[in-house]
């Protein structure tokens, strides 16, 4: 198992390298460089080309592309992402400030969608053809097809404004300290963010479960005289779990992409809303750093999914 994880990590490294190169290339291809962003357009005419060259040399911008990429990479590995163009705050400080909120939201949505999706999908499969199954199928189709921000707005309208059960948005209220204190704040954005994924997981676990229940080892289990719950859960669900875990891994990027919008809708102070601001303000270094970090998150998530799959399905550990 350990060799499996180590080998999987070694595969991830070159992938990270290639992606970081692509991200840096993207940054390079954006019009202008850091120096041209630094200088106020109003005084741009007064700056001599010599002064510009001097500034560029001071920032190392006269070096070749590959050389600069190397320096940038070393900095990033050391956790130094550079500075935001607007305000000049270090990017690591911005991200460290914003990341916990985003992680909290994503992990909540991930757990919620996995749990609810699997449970509903399994119930749907076990009662195939019943009214419950049909209802869940329709709800699932709606969930997959209606965009999240729409759900977000409707949820705010109903649960926050009309029923007044939950706060409209924001993360921390004055005086909030522990996680429990801001639990009401996370419920709406968390559930809305997870809706699409929940519906996907539900549809997928239903079909995986139906597939697994029609396999022959289920008949074997039945012929052993095992109780029904054990046939369905221990034998059926366990085998259906492998494809579901893989699906959840594939869907993680949508969760991260969705959080950008949902954070904006609910004024959740996470990386996603910062990302939108950065895009609006053409803050390229910040946009690139956040993009790089989401890529990193997705790669790590897929690593975790692979390890989980190997844990669940012994056949994966082969070789």
């Amino acid at each position: 198992m350990l060799t499996f994880i180590v080998r999987r990590l070694l595969i991830t490294l070159p992938m990270m390298l290639v992606i970081s190169f692509l991200v840096y290339l993207g940054l390079e291809l954006t019009p202008g460089d850091a120096v041209s962003h630094m200088i106020d357009p109003e005084v741009a005419n007064e700056v001599t080309p010599e002064q510009l060259a001097q500034l560029r040399a001071a920032y190392g911008l006269d070096k070749s592309f590959i050389e600069r990429y190397g320096i940038w990479l070393v900095n990033i590995v050391q956790g130094n992402f550079g500075h935001s163009l607007s305000g000049g705050v270090s990017i690591s400080a911005i991200v460290l400030d914003r990341l916990p909120a985003t992680l909290e939201l994503s992990v909540f949505a991930l757990l919620f969608s996995t749990l609810i999706g699997c449970v509903l999908g399994t119930i749907s499969a076990l009662r195939r053809g019943s009214a419950t199954d049909s209802t869940l199928t329709v709800v699932g189709m709606l969930g997959v097809s209606i965009p999240e921000f729409f759900f977000g707005l409707v949820a705010i309208l109903i649960f926050a404004l009309h029923l007044n059960w939950l706060p409209v948005g924001g993360r921390l209220m004055p005086g909030d300290e522990s996680f429990i204190d801001h639990l009401p704040n996370i419920i709406l954005p968390g559930i809305v963010l997870s809706l699409m994924m929940t519906a996907g997981v539900m549809r997928y676990s239903r079909s995986a479960m139906l597939d697994s229940l029609s396999r022959e080892f289920i008949r074997t289990a039945r012929s052993k005289g095992l109780p029904e719950w054990r046939i369905n859960l221990v034998h059926g669900f366990r085998v259906a779990l492998t494809p579901v875990v893989v699906l959840i891994g594939f869907r993680l990027p949508t969760l991260i992409g969705g959080s950008v919008i949902i954070e904006e809708v609910f004024q959740w102070p996470g990386v996603g809303s910062e990302f939108i601001e950065a895009v609006r303000g053409s803050d390229y270094p910040l946009v690139m750093s956040i993009a790089l970090m989401s890529v990193f998150a997705v790669l790590m998530a897929s690593l975790i999914v692979d390890v989980l799959t190997a844990l669940i399905d012994p056949r994966v550990r082969l070789g």
Partner: peptide, 17 residues
């Protein structure tokens, strides 16, 4: 316990996990 059964294809009749 009283009546037991074995099947045609032992490949698929055993749970792989």
């Amino acid at each position: 316990s009283e009546i037991a059964m074995i099947f045609q294809d032992p490949m698929t009749a055993l749970n792989p996990v």
